[in-house]
Simulated assay, not measured.
Amino acid sequence: MSPVHRPALSRPRLAVALLATVTLLTGCSSTPDPAVRVAPSASAAVTATPDAPHTPDAPDIPASPAEVAVASLGISSPLMELGLNPDGTVEVPPAEKGMTAGWYTGGAVPGEVGAAVIIGHNDTRFGRAVFHDLKKITKGADITVTDASGDAAHFTVTGTESVGKNAFPTEKVYGPAQDRALRLITCDGGFDAQGHPVNNLIVYATLT
């Protein structure tokens, strides 16, 4: 188990903050990988839905993301929603759905202010997975996230980082963001004695 991080992720417009601490897993194999603990903002508590009722006094609720694509790498995947497991760990796409990425509902909706996070496997026991080639992405590449209403948001890659899972930059990835940020996360590097990848690959992007 990696060190516990409890950054303050409150945002100025949030009325309340979650008191629970959750564990984020970025799994890339059929068994759980070491975890990084994050304290999410209260915006994580509600998953946006395109059919939510609207009243004049209530803000518009953005549609949930439905698909992610990286045209330069030939990546195109529907997005499943990733919430929390009963033990507080964040869900990852099941191994049998390795070619499907997932949006972590504890972050921002892609295209909204804040850090949106999309997690995908590199490989599973069934073979190569959706983010197998993510390590080839380059600065300036386009990442397109299409929501359930069919609207597309384009993000430009600003950089990548491969970090040890025991030194995951929690605040940098999940902390407050003033811009409309996107992070793609998968596994990277060699393997430990239990067969778990030792690194995470993080792709940073901002709304174009």
Rank of each mutant, 00 (worst) to 15 (best):
P86G: 13
N200W: 05
E81F: 02
I137A: 09
I119T: 14
A167H: 10
E112N: 12
A141I: 10
A58P: 00
S162D: 09
T23P: 00
D192W: 02
G140T: 11
P110A: 07
A177I: 02
S30H: 03
V4A: 11
S30A: 12
R180H: 15
L84C: 09
V38N: 05
K135W: 13
T146L: 04
T47P: 01
T89C: 11
A66I: 05
H196W: 00
A205L: 02
Q194H: 01
S149M: 06
D123E: 15
V4K: 08
A58C: 03
Y174N: 08
V36P: 00
I137G: 07
A152E: 14
L9H: 13
P169C: 10
R128Y: 06
A116H: 04
V70I: 15
A153D: 14
G189C: 03
E67S: 03
S162E: 15
P32E: 14
S29N: 08
T21L: 13
T138Q: 15
D188T: 01
N122F: 10
S2T: 12
H54E: 11
P7R: 08
P53Y: 03
T170G: 15
L79C: 01
E67W: 03
V173E: 10
G190S: 13
E112I: 05
K97S: 08
D87A: 01
S30W: 00
V36A: 15
F155S: 10
I75G: 03
I75T: 07
L182C: 03
L182F: 01
R13D: 12
H5I: 12
S41P: 07
A181M: 06
T55E: 06
V68E: 02
G150S: 02
G88K: 09
A177P: 00
T156R: 02
Y204H: 11
M99I: 02
P56A: 10
C28L: 01
L9C: 14
H132Y: 15
L207K: 14
A129E: 13
M80R: 10
P40S: 08
R6L: 15
A177Q: 15
D87Y: 00
V198Y: 00
P40V: 12
V4S: 13
G74R: 06
D151A: 10
P12E: 03
P53G: 06
A116T: 07
I143N: 04
L201I: 07
P53D: 08
P197G: 00
H54P: 01
S41I: 01
R11E: 14
D188N: 13
P3L: 11
V198S: 01
F131Y: 15
L201M: 05
G140P: 13
G195L: 00
D142F: 01
C187K: 00
C187P: 02
V16F: 14
V109M: 08
G190E: 12
T55W: 09
P197E: 01
D87M: 01
G98C: 02
